[in-house]
Design a protein around this nucleic acid. Structure first.
Lengths: 133, 133
DNA sequence: ATTGATATTGATAATAGTTATCATTCTTTG
DNA sequence: CAAAGAATGATAACTATTATCAATATCAAT
């Protein structure tokens, strides 16, 4: 039986209070700065427990996992390759096509992850400014 | 200027001769067994160089990167969470919706990765057999 | 409240995949 | 051929994450 300890509550609160996509180390640092110092292993275990319980959700990037609130429901992500910014989107047609693909192959889908990589609007504005015309 | 050395050619040949999704260590081991022993760093650098040149392509899984031939063109993947098997699919509707999503947000898409997780047909047959009826 | 069973914590060691370093060995080109 | 530019291989280093384990906290039943 999994427990919602004060440490896990602190992690959950921090994630729920923001719209960021946190990695474990950022969370530990931010909690520490707010007087809630947790061992890094506790953070990792807490995140896994909270995700299992459906209280938070995560995306797996190339280097690390990032966690966000679950109360916004499922969505996919646009990841800026310049600044690392993460935007969210949800497209029902994509979702339903995925189901179809899985069904066609007798594949019992349990989840999916769609990442779109590219340059976000703000970064492409920046690079336009610095061009020599 | 990037060179296609004998080592890189060996990597490329092996990948092109198969339909597998190789990780770096598997490649190094298989090459070694075929008398083409390469340092592991050479394998990693070779894979990166070949991918940059568009000669191979990769998918980033949670734990490691896996490489496959590029001459089949782009596609997405179904990953079995039981046996690790990787199937391929391509859905034009999903592809075009992605473009649309990016365009709507003035996001300059450079690539994407869609992974569908679940249980493959063969694994779900296996578990059905072992049930106590 | 006490006890016993179970879960969690935190410090730290260990692991896995990958990248960095650096001296040595090719290649290419003038 | 010599200089410049790449690549190789052995290995150290790095990063994110998980395992270990003793100490502590929590829960349920007495």
């Amino acid at each position: 039986m999994v427990r919602l300890t004060v440490q896990r509550q602190a992690i959950l609160d921090l994630i729920n209070r923001s719209n960021q996509h946190w990695d474990a180390e950022e969370l530990a640092r931010c909690l520490g700065e707010n007087g809630e110092q947790l061992g890094i292993a506790t953070v990792y275990r807490g995140l896994a427990a909270l995700e299992n319980a459906g209280l938070i959700q995560s995306i797996q990037l190339a280097d690390k996992k990032r966690y966000e609130r679950a109360d916004k429901g499922h969505h996919d992500h646009l990841v800026c390759i310049k600044c690392g910014d993460i935007e969210e989107f949800c497209d029902n047609k994509i979702e339903s096509r995925q189901q179809q693909v899985a069904q066609d192959r007798s594949f019992q889908m349990t989840g999916h992850q769609l990442l779109i990589f590219g340059v976000c609007q703000s970064c492409s504005n920046d690079s336009r400014e610095s061009e020599t015309p």
